[in-house]
Design a protein around this nucleic acid. Structure first.
Lengths: 158, 158
DNA sequence: CTCTATGCAAATCTTTTGCACGAAC
DNA sequence: GTTCGTGCAAAAGATTTGCATAGAG
């Protein structure tokens, strides 16, 4: 059985995995270009970040990494997250009283965060186009749409 | 000498202080209506919140309170801040790696926070009018403009 | 072989909580 | 007099740091 968009007799899942691996290797190349090294811990963290589930805390990411390598320490996770954020690969968001959450910076998007139930709705970039424009012309401020978070009440909690 | 907007021979400073005291008593009345009490610590914290300097951490507010009453404990500050936020008198914002900052919720305004130098620019409510409208109609999401924070690069750091 | 990354433990910083006493209403 | 607020101490949670060693380039 052949699926559209696959190569040879590869399944869609296998195809997606291959694309993900490529993306990870690209990031690792970027890391190397900046004097960093491609370690197993870093690979596993990136795999967790590229996997399903958008916004996760350091602890949650560590749990995923631990499934493959139980010895990776939480401090290593933090150090790598810091590095990846510095390189612009990921963004972090701090909301409510809980821990910071991290996610890939690839897809430009903003967040609507409910202050009651904590749910997070992602909205497309162009919803902020006017605001970004005004901030730039009137205040000289360049909004980073990746780190855009707005709080309020979601549809369920209103 | 008489200044516009003052009563009798009151100076502008004295006039402002009187208005501030009135505002504080109004908040305390609200607190009482909700089963709370008007304690000295609460008064001093409110005075600090109404004073100059918009966004301050619990520690900074405690320092101001301590100038008048050195015995007020930091935990009391936190408990009062929590209560005042619950009543809608103040809002809190968590940015970067540092502590949460608190400010009066009276003036509806958003924040443009520079991710480089940490400076905070306040912008008027109506800059977000369209965004608030779109979020409501398309996502059923009610944005709270008081807690609106956007990160990016300020004019100096671009 | 050199320099970066890691594991581990401990420290730091912010915020929260339990409890007994004192104060506001 | 009741109920709420406070001081104090201790805990809890998240993140950072120092150091010796293992590992990538």
């Amino acid at each position: 059985m052949l699926y559209p968009g696959t190569v040879g007799n590869e399944t869609p899942t296998a195809s997606a995995e291959r694309a993900e691996t490529e993306a990870i290797e690209e990031v690792l190349a970027l890391v190397r270009r900046n004097g960093g090294r491609a370690t197993p811990a870093r690979r596993l963290l990136l795999k967790a970040l590229f996997g399903t589930g958008e916004h996760r805390s350091a602890e949650e990411l560590a749990a995923e990494v631990h499934a493959q390598a139980p010895d990776v320490h939480l401090s290593t996770i933090y150090r790598n997250l810091e590095e990846l954020e510095r390189l612009g690969v990921i963004d972090s968001t701090r909301l409510g009283g809980g821990p910071a959450t991290y996610h890939l910076a690839t897809a430009a998007h903003g967040h609507l965060v409910c202050e009651k139930c904590g749910s997070m709705t992602e909205v497309p970039d162009d919803m902020f186009r006017d605001l970004i424009q005004t901030a730039s012309t009137e205040y000289g401020f360049a909004i980073n749409p990746h780190r855009f978070a707005v709080t309020g009440r979601c549809a369920n909690c209103r």
